[in-house]
Amino acid sequence: MCGIAALQVRDPALRPRLGALLAGMTCRLVDRGPDAAGVAVYDEPGLLPAGWSNVSVLDPGRPDWPDAVAAALGAEVDVRHVGPTAVVRSRTTTAALAGAVRTAVPEATRIGRGRHAVTLKGVGLAADLTEAFGLDALGGTQGIAHTRMATESAVVASGSHPFSVDDDLCLVHNGSFSNHATVRRTLRRHGVEFDSDNDSEVAARFIGHRMAAGDTLTEALERVVGVFDGFYTLVVTTAGTLAVLRDPIACKPAVVAETAAWVAVASEYRALAELPGVETARIFEPEPGRVYTWTS
């Protein structure tokens, strides 16, 4: 149970302000989720140089671990500490980097990976975390953020959203699934592994699993409606694409606002109130059971 905020920038002039706008949206939703928060930003050159890969982990706190990753990778890595998150960067593939992180620091929870998206998360209030992440100073093409009120899983950083389980695929969720344990078992039988006991991670893994099998993002989300039961507003991003899906009953809130310069999704109007030009934006609520996508 949570607050959701997502912003995709269409006007390149707005890119430097992406982080500041997203931080404002997120902090306005802190009442919906005071337990934890997280964010993923796409194409922020300071966080991730173009062409590089990253794997972000909850900082394991052991001093020599970056060297161990480099040794396992057999290539240079660069670690950037961002609040409670450490972003491991290299010029290799994400798969190679993720494998090396796993081998070298198996105790570190991996929270995100990709060549465009960097995921940052932690426990506590959104205002404290966005400050720790330095979100105000970050730019980018799109971002997705979440404030969490834990329902049936633990209040730990690994249970924070976004769930980024495949390259540049990030998911945030407001609601609760009522059959996630069964979907989790099914995915496990297909070899999918999980990092948390969180129901939202199951949706992220399901979408990743389907896309790996050849589904488009839209097709994978359409399958979610048939497979998952319960209440959900999902916002999912891939490199260049932002998608929204609400369950067929659609109890959990969602508002979309769209201008020529940006498209934003949030749990509530108050998250949108400070966006530039929101007064003249096209504003609507996503219909139940329908997949919406926007491509930058």
Partner: peptide, 14 residues
Amino acid sequence: SRHPDWTGPDDLAI
């Protein structure tokens, strides 16, 4: 079985 204008703890807080 559900309230007409809120669902879940985040809405209940409001």
